[in-house]
Amino acid sequence: MTGVLSFTDVAVRFASTETSTGAPPVPPAVDSVSFTINRGEIFGIVGESGSGKSTLANSVMGLLPRSAQVTGSIRVNDREVIGLDDDQLRSMRGDEVSMIFQDASASLDPTWSVGDQIAETIRAHRTISRRGARAKAISLMTEVGIADAASRYSDAPHRLSGGMRQRIMIAAALANNPQLLIADEPTTALDVTIQAQVLALIGELRKNHGTTVLLITHDLGVVAQVCDRVGVMYGGKLLEVAAAEDLFANPQHAYTRALLAASPSGAPRGSRLPVIPAAWNIEDLQRLRQEGTE
C-alpha cells in the first residue's frame, strides 16, 4: 500500500547551540514517528502543546529552523523529502503539498487584495495569463464558499471576517490542486459556529478533489467532526493510531483515555473531571523541558 505521505522512524532534534561534552542531550521534539496517510484520507494528529505535532507538520514542508536535525524518512508520493534543497522544496510547496495555518490574518499580506494573493500562488507554479489566473482565483473563491467572489476579489484582507480569511487561505492552498493539504490548527482562532463551517468545507474538498489532508489539532472535537484516522501525540511520540470512531469508542492508550475523560462535554454536569495522571501531565513535561534548556 503506497500512501501520499509516509513517515518512517522520523525524529526531529533541535541542536543546542553549544555541543559541550557532558551536557545532557536535548529531548527530541519528535521521536521515532512512523505512519502512512492513504490517498484521499483525512488524517488527524491530536496532541496538547509541546507534543511535537506542529514540528512534525513543518518537517514535511522543510519549514523547520536550521538548527533542527531531521532523521528517518518522510516520503511524499514516494519521493524522499528529507535532504531536498531549497529550490526543490519551494517547487513542492504550494504545488504538490500546501499548508494552511492557524492565523490566517498573519499569513495574508495586508497590502494585497485577497484575490491577487490567490492568483499569485497560481502564477508561481505555472505559466498562465494574468486574466486566466484571475478567473481561476475567482472560481476558487466561489468554491470555498465566498459569495459574490468577483466583487470580493479586490478586497484587502482586513475587510473580511476571520472565517472568510481562512477560506481565502484554503483557496490559495488549493490553487494548484495539491495532492496533500497540511492544516495546522486551521480552526483554533475561529468562533465555534464558523469552525464547524470551515471543517465542513475541508470535508467537502476532500470529497470533490480527493485531496489528502493532514490535520493538526489540539481539539478532540475537531477530530471527531472530520477525520478518518487519528494519531495521538505526546512528548514527541506517536502513542496510537486508530480510526476516529475506534479512538473515541475504544481508546487503547492510557493517555488517550485520560484526555477523552478530561473533556467537559460528555461528562455529567457539575461532576469533577478526571485529572490526567501525573505521568502524563503536560505541564510536568513542559517544566522538565524548560528546566533542561534554561
Partner: peptide
C-alpha cells in the same frame, strides 16, 4: 501499535550556562 511507557522524570541536569 506498540505501547510506550510514560516518560519518567529522569535526572534534571542543567545545561552549563551559555555565553552571554
Amino acid at each position: 501499535m506498540t505501547t510506550i511507557a510514560p516518560p519518567t522524570g529522569g535526572p534534571i541536569v542543567r545545561r552549563p550556562r551559555s555565553k552571554p
